[in-house]
Computed example of a mutant assay.
Amino acid sequence: MTTSVTRRLALGLVAGAALFATAASAQDFPNRIIKMVVPYPAGGPTDVIARIVAEEMGKDLGQNVIVENLAGASGAVGTRAVAKAEPDGYTIVFGNNQTHGNNMFLLKEPGYDAVKDFAPLAGAGAFEHVFVVRNDLPAKTIPELIEIAKKDPGKLNYGSTGVGSGSHLATELFMTRTGTKMTHVPFRGAAPLVTEIMAGRIDVSNSTLPSVLSQFQAGQMRAIGIASPQRNPQAPDVPTLREQGITDADAESWAAFFAPVNTPKPVLDKLSGTIIAILNKPDVKERITKLGFTLNVRDPEAFKPYLAKEIQTWAEIIKAASIKAE
């Protein structure tokens, strides 16, 4: 047998062994704890939804799925950690339009590529935004808020869940459309922002509905307008921006599950199939919908073009608001 033939046989055996190992590892997957990273503080709506899904994944996969909160840098800290994690399916992330879209335009060095470094597992849906104000702010409607903001530009402050977050960009879009100016106060997630609104130290926020739903229902702040085409069934008394004369300032913040890009396809398929099945369970749908989150489950192939379109949309919003990278 010639040396070249021997070499080809050896290479074939190595390749076959690698394929067998991949298939075997996928078949055995998971055989230890899976970590789901939430790149925001505990207690916010993203965290709550992640914990619902993680709990169900643990039941369906027969292994614990733990949620780890790695907040910081507008979600980039936790997202970067997952991008650099071993691509074996044991580390995944619950990301959104900020971590896997806006950060590419708003952070000079996010430390990862939102498209090239990740494989989508499932699109979950979107958070609609709702304008809330502190209880003692004399604005019960969007036109009244605009009037107050225009009387003294920059005096009102508005809180967001971080530079480049949906709540930040959606408010910048609103100010561009209405000719108003308010001062931005970014927070590291929804929980501290909500606390400051209730304490009366933040005037207004265009927050995701799940992050403020229970608080305005309890009278701890006032909801004055929802930035979506229709009213939300969880907050039927809150009129839309369109109903109040603002027709071009709607925005939503999507959320989705991702794994590192080089994760073996059989593992990706197993994770994806499990998450999609969980999001379609009637009891899970009910629990998540009650939070104010609008479910719109997409498999990876359906999510990829949606992701590309959303990145383009938010890039245009960033440009329109003249927001510079930091």
Rank of each mutant, 00 (worst) to 15 (best):
2 T>G: 15
3 T>N: 15
5 V>D: 14
7 R>W: 06
8 R>F: 13
11 L>T: 15
11 L>W: 12
12 G>V: 05
12 G>T: 13
16 G>R: 11
19 L>D: 05
19 L>V: 15
20 F>Q: 04
22 T>R: 08
24 A>F: 15
27 Q>M: 14
27 Q>D: 13
29 F>W: 15
29 F>Y: 14
33 I>K: 15
35 K>S: 14
36 M>R: 09
36 M>H: 05
38 V>M: 04
39 P>G: 04
43 G>D: 06
45 P>E: 02
45 P>C: 12
49 I>R: 01
50 A>Q: 02
51 R>E: 12
60 D>C: 11
60 D>F: 13
65 V>Q: 09
69 N>E: 02
71 A>C: 10
74 S>H: 02
76 A>E: 08
77 V>P: 07
77 V>S: 10
78 G>V: 07
79 T>L: 05
80 R>N: 13
82 V>A: 00
84 K>L: 08
85 A>K: 07
86 E>R: 12
86 E>M: 06
91 T>L: 00
91 T>S: 13
93 V>L: 05
94 F>H: 06
99 T>L: 03
99 T>G: 05
101 G>Y: 08
101 G>V: 04
103 N>K: 04
108 K>P: 05
108 K>C: 06
110 P>G: 03
110 P>E: 06
110 P>Q: 01
111 G>R: 01
112 Y>V: 02
114 A>N: 07
121 L>T: 04
121 L>E: 03
121 L>N: 05
128 E>I: 07
128 E>D: 11
132 V>Y: 08
133 V>I: 08
137 L>F: 12
137 L>S: 09
138 P>C: 01
142 I>L: 13
142 I>P: 12
143 P>K: 06
143 P>F: 10
143 P>M: 07
144 E>I: 02
147 E>M: 07
148 I>L: 15
160 S>T: 14
165 S>A: 13
167 S>Y: 03
170 A>E: 00
171 T>Y: 12
175 M>Y: 04
175 M>N: 08
177 R>L: 14
179 G>Y: 00
183 T>G: 07
184 H>F: 12
185 V>M: 10
186 P>C: 04
194 V>A: 15
198 M>G: 05
199 A>R: 13
201 R>D: 13
202 I>L: 04
202 I>A: 01
203 D>W: 03
211 S>T: 01
212 V>L: 09
216 F>T: 00
221 M>A: 08
223 A>R: 08
225 G>E: 01
225 G>N: 01
228 S>R: 15
238 V>A: 09
239 P>H: 11
239 P>F: 00
244 Q>F: 01
245 G>K: 10
251 A>I: 07
251 A>D: 04
251 A>L: 11
255 A>T: 11
257 F>E: 00
259 A>M: 02
260 P>L: 09
261 V>Q: 10
262 N>M: 14
268 L>D: 01
269 D>G: 11
270 K>Q: 10
274 T>Y: 05
274 T>H: 08
276 I>T: 02
277 A>S: 14
278 I>P: 03
282 P>W: 03
284 V>F: 00
285 K>H: 09
292 G>W: 01
292 G>F: 04
293 F>I: 04
295 L>F: 04
296 N>Y: 11
297 V>Q: 09
300 P>A: 12
300 P>F: 00
306 Y>P: 04
306 Y>F: 15
306 Y>S: 08
313 T>G: 12
314 W>K: 02
316 E>N: 12
318 I>W: 05
319 K>Y: 06
324 K>V: 12
326 E>R: 14
